[in-house]
Write a protein that binds this DNA or RNA. Structure first.
Lengths: 209, 209
DNA sequence: GACAAATGACTGACTGGTCAGTTATTTGAT
DNA sequence: ATCAAATAACTGACCAGTCAGTCATTTGTC
């Protein structure tokens, strides 16, 4: 393999290794994934992999660090920039199918769900820094919409779980089944329906009987 | 260990081993789980475990067989016995928290998501026999409610994913986080909100402008 | 009902293979 | 020529699966 001399050479090599590792962890699980296979997938040898990452554990943690934060930013941007709950749902309907189909997020989700037990501390950290924050974002959105009289909802932060449930289901489903016959889902249609269903679900009652 | 002589002795021993195996697979993942630990957890030795199951693979498959079908029956019974979509949602609100908290289903879900890659054929079978059937059940329910004029929905079988999303999220969340601080969720409240949200989400529009 | 023989449930040391991590050596850019 | 980058052979820990042997329980005989 050609040598990585410059800093940016090394950065991209590191990135290739992270990509290869996510692929292997996704396909075989943390325990069963082999360091040599990860290196091979990136076109390198096992020894070289160890020049970039101290251990299998460190590699796993690096994947999460490299993916979680940037993805959180994107989701956060979509959610917080919307002027209303209704508008936020429309944006989700537009972005969610692409994110689910093209980003690494669904595969990362599967890996974390499946291999979390190996690193309980990562799991807790991940929940607090990523999941709680995303749920909090939507909860906040719902809370503001409630305050503005746009929607009616008992507990906005619990309602966030109702709104996000179908996204998680679709993401995991895609990661697990999208390449098996009968596993395809019309995500565009699903999220269009989702947006309209959620708008109605939390719409204020015009005049109760 | 006391010896299991009668057939029913052996049946319950087999069940103890299945329980122990689910615990270990859940806590450590399929690859990392050790046959000796599974046996120990059931108060037996590794050799005895192999008297009951031919291999680690066979043990994994036996767990799924033993849990998937009975659980499907229960869910099916709840869904099909309800006279209306609205009534079905109320029943879900009553049963879901208990199922999530006390059944093995959430832990089984986590194990299957996490270790499916080891047995791709099991994953496909599980999707077809369990997931597709449950989604189909709810889809059918929505479809009938639509025909009866109880609800308004574009595609009942896609809508089933919107209804089930929060259940899956709650189940997985419970399996992963219920024992960590800040991971508790008020499931009763959540599913009460879920029922009312879903009723409104698919309620027919009285008179459109 | 006592006791020996037969059964089969149970055990744990052992084997063969796998793989994370290390290191001595080679390669190639400057 | 130098030196960092890359390699591949190596080591030691680990574990699925095996099997020779143990011993609790049942069975049959007196």
């Amino acid at each position: 393999m050609l040598r990585a001399r410059t800093v940016s050479d090394k950065d991209s090599r590191r990135q290739e290794l992270l990509d290869a590792a996510l692929d292997e962890f996704f396909e075989r699980g943390f325990s069963a994934a082999r360091m040599e296979d990860i290196a091979k997938r990136a076109g390198l040898s096992k020894g070289t992999l160890y020049l970039y990452f101290d251990s299998k554990d460190a590699l796993f943690k690096a994947i999460i660090d490299a993916l979680a934060t940037p993805n959180l930013e994107v989701i956060s941007a979509i959610a917080t920039s919307a002027p209303s709950f209704s508008e936020a749902l429309d944006r989700v309907a537009v972005f969610a199918p692409t994110v689910i189909r093209t980003s690494k997020l669904p595969r990362l989700m599967k890996v974390i769900v499946g291999d979390s037990h190996t690193f309980p501390e990562i799991l807790i950290e991940y929940r607090q820094n990523i999941l709680d924050r995303i749920l909090g974002l939507f909860g906040e959105l719902l809370s503001q919409a409630k305050a503005a009289g746009e929607i009616e909802v008992e507990d906005p932060y619990l309602a966030a779980r109702i709104v996000m449930g179908p996204m998680l289901l679709s993401g995991l489903w895609h990661a697990l089944f999208s390449d098996t016959p009968g596993g395809e889902v019309d995500l565009e249609k699903l999220f269009r329906m989702h947006a309209s269903a959620m708008k109605k679900a939390f719409a204020p009652v015009e005049n109760s009987q």
